[in-house]
Amino acid sequence: MSVERVVRRLRDDLDDAGLRGSFLVRDVHNGDEIGIEPDIEYPIASLVKLPLALATLDRIRAGELDGGEPVRVDPGDMIVAGPTGLSRFRHPAYVAIDDLLYLSMSISDNTATDILFGLTPPDDVAASMRASGFHGISVRHPIRDISETVAAQLQPADAHLAYSLAAEAGTSGRGHRIPQLDVTVANSGTARAFVDLLQALWKPSGLDPWTAERVRALMAGNVFRQRLAPDFSSDATKWSSRTGSLLNLRHEVGVVEHADGQVFAVAALTESRVPAFIQPAAEAVMGRVARTLRDQVRVM
Rank of each mutant, 00 (worst) to 15 (best):
R192P: 00
R192N: 13
R192K: 09
R192Y: 01
A193T: 12
A193S: 15
F194L: 13
V195A: 13
V195E: 01
D196M: 11
D196V: 05
D196E: 15
D196G: 08
L197K: 14
L197R: 12
L198K: 02
L198Y: 09
L198E: 11
Q199T: 15
Q199R: 14
A200P: 08
A200V: 09
L201S: 07
L201C: 05
L201Q: 08
L201K: 04
W202N: 09
W202E: 12
W202G: 00
K203I: 02
K203D: 01
K203G: 00
P204Y: 01
P204C: 02
S205K: 03
S205V: 11
S205Q: 03
S205P: 08
G206Q: 06
G206Y: 02
L207Q: 04
L207S: 03
D208V: 05
D208R: 06
D208K: 06
P209C: 09
W210C: 00
W210N: 01
W210P: 00
T211K: 02
A212H: 08
A212V: 06
E213I: 00
E213T: 08
E213K: 14
E213W: 01
R214M: 11
R214V: 00
R214H: 13
R214A: 15
R214W: 11
V215S: 06
V215Y: 04
R216L: 06
A217Q: 14
A217T: 14
A217H: 05
A217V: 08
A217D: 11
L218V: 03
L218Q: 03
M219C: 07
A220I: 00
A220Y: 03
A220P: 00
G221L: 06
G221S: 10
N222L: 04
V223P: 01
V223M: 11
F224L: 14
F224A: 10
F224I: 12
F224N: 07
R225M: 10
R225G: 09
R225L: 04
Q226E: 14
Q226P: 00
Q226M: 03
Q226L: 03
Q226I: 02
Q226V: 05
Q226Y: 10
R227D: 09
L228D: 12
L228W: 10
A229V: 11
A229K: 13
P230F: 13
P230H: 12
D231A: 12
D231L: 03
F232Q: 08
F232V: 13
F232I: 12
F232R: 13
F232N: 03
S233V: 15
S234D: 10
S234H: 04
S234R: 11
S234M: 03
S234W: 02
A236C: 00
A236D: 14
T237Q: 08
K238P: 00
K238N: 09
K238A: 14
W239G: 08
S240G: 10
S240T: 10
S240Q: 10
S241C: 12
S241R: 02
